[in-house]
Amino acid sequence: MRRRTLIGGLAGTVGAMGFMLGLGAWRSRPVADPKLPLPLSQMDWTLTDHLGATVQPQDWLNLPVMVFFGFTWCPDVCPTTLVDIESWLVELGPEADRLIVALITVDPERDTPEVLADYIGYFDPRMLALTGPAPEIAKAAEAFRVRYEKIPQDEGDYTMNHTAGVFLFRRGGSFAGIIDFHEDRRFAVPKIRRAME
């Protein structure tokens, strides 16, 4: 962190142009930490959005991106996350129009594109909801370092445990940070703004 500030500071004295180039090069280095999501540009998955369009991570490199994992049978965490995200979008105002916001289901068995369309239709129309074949969901989860697990319940019912944070990516696809589920919402919007810079 200190090193990054120092590099930024030095580059800043050289000139705005040099700074941007230097930072760009620094950011485009592959992320080595296996616990952090890959840059979108290095991900490989193909999913379908709730309107039936094919989506790949490379489609998202032109804008900042906010992604979270969930499922529509989830009674507590997922609606709460969606409502939180909506409140962030409201606070961001028109700025949020240039942000890609997507839910990726961890329950493709029940969450078909039609089911997702029905569900996401109750929320901000700027949100996408993605599903796909189970192996593609698994590839996406692996790339985001997301874990999920099916938990059987009585009478053949089941629920899903899943990573609950919201992932932020800068334009160009580099990973910018996570907003944790119980994080104070006052910190969320500044985090999103930084990812959108």
């Binding site: 507590d76 965490v77 874990r147 938990i151 009585d154 009478e155 019912d157 629920t159 445990n161 899943h162 990573t163 609950a164 944070g165 996570i178 944790d180 589920f181 119980h182």
Partner: peptide, 17 residues
């Protein structure tokens, strides 16, 4: 038909109920 009490727990970033 089947009401239950649950607790949402987030541990290591993973939500379970």
């Amino acid at each position: 038909g089947m009401p239950m009490l649950h607790e949402t727990v987030v541990k290591d970033g993973i939500a379970s109920m």
